[in-house]
């Protein structure tokens, strides 16, 4: 219930109007949205029970390692409801396959649709989504870790919450199924990071400083 309460309201995209090139405009709008989502994500992380007890170094490591996974849980969750096969980055930024392809994000589209249909098939509850998001951050396999015991305690707290929630619903296999979906999330996030790095390096799409800093940490 704490995670449900601290879940930030979805952001709206602010349309970039610095260029007439439609697909570049889409990219710039998307990158601006991502940058603002990152800011919100960092504020959100501090509110997860146990996160602020970690050393500053470990907080940084977990975020640098797990930010894309945590953000993509949100995108995949929002995209489930989309009737057409769009990716719902925001209510006012929904991209279909053709738009993603035109923007050079065909690979990201495919990866995210795959994740979305996996979540759809699992019929996740809001409680499961917020827990999955927090676990993605806690389980990000950041290296090096300053205090492994504290990170372990942070993970254990979330795992315990998930198990308690599922046993209250008498769902014996759900916690395990959720954990078994984490590898696909990791894979999807890796592909997303590569896609944005490509945009920046090969197509010289300008990125905001925070987004660039977080992508660089993964490069």
């Amino acid at each position: 219930s704490h995670l449900l309460l601290t879940e930030p309201a979805p952001l709206a995209a602010s349309q970039d109007d610095s260029t007439n090139d439609g697909s570049l405009r889409t990219l710039l709008t998307l990158c601006d949205l991502l940058n603002r989502e990152l800011l919100v994500l960092i504020g959100w992380a501090k509110q997860i029970p146990g996160f602020s007890a970690l050393s500053l170094v470990d907080q940084m490591s977990l975020l640098q390692s797990g930010w894309m996974e945590a953000l993509l849980v949100g995108v995949a969750w929002r995209s489930q409801a989309s009737a057409g096969e769009e990716l719902v980055f925001a209510r006012n930024l929904q991209l279909d396959e053709a738009q993603c392809r035109a923007a050079g994000l065909a690979d990201l589209y495919e990866a995210l649709r795959h994740l979305t249909s996996r979540y759809q098939a699992m019929n996740l509850s809001p409680e499961e989504v917020v827990t999955l998001k927090a676990m993605a951050l806690a389980n990000s396999d950041a290296e090096p870790v300053d205090c492994p015991d504290s990170v372990q305690r942070f993970q254990d707290g979330l795992h315990e919450a998930l198990q308690e929630y599922e046993s209250s619903r008498r769902e014996q296999h759900r916690a395990g199924r959720l954990l078994m979906s984490l590898p696909l999330l990791r894979q999807t996030a890796d592909r997303a990071v590569q896609a944005f790095l490509r945009l920046h390096r090969h197509r010289r799409v300008p990125l905001h400083k925070l987004l660039l800093e977080m992508l660089d940490a993964k490069a």
């Binding site: 960092i42 500053l56 907080q59 940084m60 975020l63 400083k209 925070l210 800093e213």
Partner: peptide, 15 residues
């Protein structure tokens, strides 16, 4: 750490 100064600053802000 110098490389990640924005994240560092954001985490240090108390709010």
């Amino acid at each position: 750490k110098e490389k990640h100064k924005i994240l560092h600053q954001l985490l240090q802000n108390s709010t």
